[in-house]
Design a protein around this nucleic acid. Structure first.
Lengths: 192, 192, 192, 192
DNA sequence: TATGAATGAGGATTCATTCAT
DNA sequence: AATGAATGAATCCTCATTCAT
């Protein structure tokens, strides 16, 4: 089997460097040079591969979205029944592959900057709508109408809040514990 | 009698302008000139009154924290019993004086940028610790030990999540409705 | 009587510097720093006053067009009859105020770069159309129909050619002699 | 027989591409990549074959000069008498092989950039001197001394002017018509 | 008290050139 | 013979800050 083309490899490396650099300096403040230094390459390379700073940051965002989406699909494959599906979706946000300080940090940065950049706003909006409709579909089968939105907003906000905290954590994150916690929250929100 | 000194008036005007400008351009991207234009004055004035861009942004942050703290104290004055106190504290986050798109936007921006600026980090940490301990004090009287932290984290994250959403709202916010919502969430989280 | 506002003075200085720098390095190759050095100021000032390099170059072009137009109007004021008017218009191209190496050089540069910049193309087109229609108006009264265009094209091309040569001259130009020369050419083109 | 060596073929292709690209972007603004794309090859090839960007542009210039010189020689071969020779030389500037928008465009670009590049300046100077002395030689036999230079300058300037116009033409050029025109101009300049 | 002209460090980006393949 | 990945110098531009007025 053929190996990965150079282009793909470098894309991956540069996106990794971007995640590190955004985590360290913030989305709006990070410079091409900081990212290049992190990737141990020249600033020009980033333009060679992504055309512009914006191009790299967009690709980085899409990478994160894909990781999250894949984690969700994987967990959903094993879930039966609305309650399990709800838990699976919520827990995928704290998947080992996604719930790291760096990625939460970048996620938060993207979010905070979405209002000021169209490309980000679009991605953010799409992702948010997807999660909302997924949650609603399951909650419909679990709670009476007047309770559903309260629970959904609480759950969605909970996940946002945990990410935000994680982005500023001083010690290592604990994804499995976080998955237990979100399950408890769901238990509480679904109580009759 | 005795009107406000000019210095204080200008400070207020410039902080108001900073809030508007940060909301429009983002914390990291906003420029001295944008703020000055919003305040209908010259860029030099900001340095005259605040010494630096950082000085103004710090003062702006403190202003928001004060508004929030005052709203909390005011509501707590009328609250009796732990449940009422918990609701009062939570609802103060959605007080008419505080819960506007502009202020939520700036609040979110401060938060997202706290990891990259010491002054912000300090303020953010203090505020967060205050809220946490306040919540804990009341929850101690309302829930068994093993349930308290789940509820507290859920509640605190809920408020963060609502602010984040509010910062990106396209239509006018509805503070009273938001206060009703948070009460429902608390009801659910406190269910036995 | 009030003195010129600072803004106007600096505009003039910077345009003068731009003319010198374009003459030395060429329109497409000249840099903001070269112009700034020529004006004995910082590169930032040019952006402060003109917004961009393009802004300054556009203003420089308009300045040259105005000098030429003013010289034409001045000479036309004293001219009576079509022949004198034709000579006046042609000679204004070699007016003392306009016909210097530096200005011919910049003029040539603008012209050569017009195909690649809309702003330049527009100005160039307008100016060219103006000269053409002026020439035609007078030639109509001086030559039979089938001869007019040949003469007009020859005359217009002659002026372009002299400018082009002047731009590359190694010794000082001689505007009065050039005005005598163009008169001779006109004499020849108008021979019956 | 024996076909052209690859080296020569590639040289030709790259020069053709350079002419197209210079016409499209201007001499000073054109990039190696634009030329390479036009030649459907990689940027590295140009350095492989010409050593540098400057090398290719110089070769392109020499190519144009050769085309013009060949056209002149060809036409001179058939011309008898000074008047016919003068016409032949003038008309060769508008030969079918030379008088195209692209080539006029590049010609103009070379000319405008000659003052800023030694290699170009040298070629330009040589060519100009050649034309001048050729014209003078024939005019000596056609006009009295005091009229020769006026006519020569007018004729040389006319050709420059027509090229300059042609470089910016929006519709297809008409070489035969242009040759008729220049003959009329010569008729007029040679009138006694 | 307030202005805005001026500066210069630092940003994103472009591009000729080199070189390993 | 030809490629295109990689570099880094150079360019335009932005912006906080200073300071004379």
């Amino acid at each position: 089997m053929g190996r990965k083309p150079i282009k793909e490899i470098r894309h991956g490396e540069l996106i990794d460097a971007a995640i590190k650099a955004i985590h360290q300096h913030g989305y709006a403040a990070v410079t091409i040079i900081q990212i290049a230094r992190e990737a141990d390459t020249a600033a020009g390379s980033i333009h060679y591969y992504f055309g512009s700073k914006e191009g790299l940051l967009g690709a980085t965002m899409r990478r994160l979205l894909n990781i999250l989406r894949d984690a969700t699909l994987e967990r959903l494959a094993d879930a039966t029944g609305p309650r399990e599906r709800l838990i699976a979706m919520a827990q995928s946000n704290f998947d080992n592959k996604f719930f790291s300080i760096e990625q939460c940090s970048v996620w938060t940065q993207f979010w905070a900057n979405a209002p000021y950049e169209d490309a980000l706003a679009r991605l953010h909006k799409i992702n948010r709508a997807r999660v909302r409709s997924n949650f609603r579909a399951e909650l419909k089968l679990l709670l009476p109408p007047e309770e559903r939105e309260v629970a959904r907003r609480a759950l969605q906000a909970y996940m946002d809040g945990v990410w935000l905290q994680a982005a500023q954590a001083s010690k290592q994150l604990d994804p499995p514990e976080e998955r237990r916690q979100v399950k408890k929250v769901i238990d509480r929100l679904l109580m009759d």
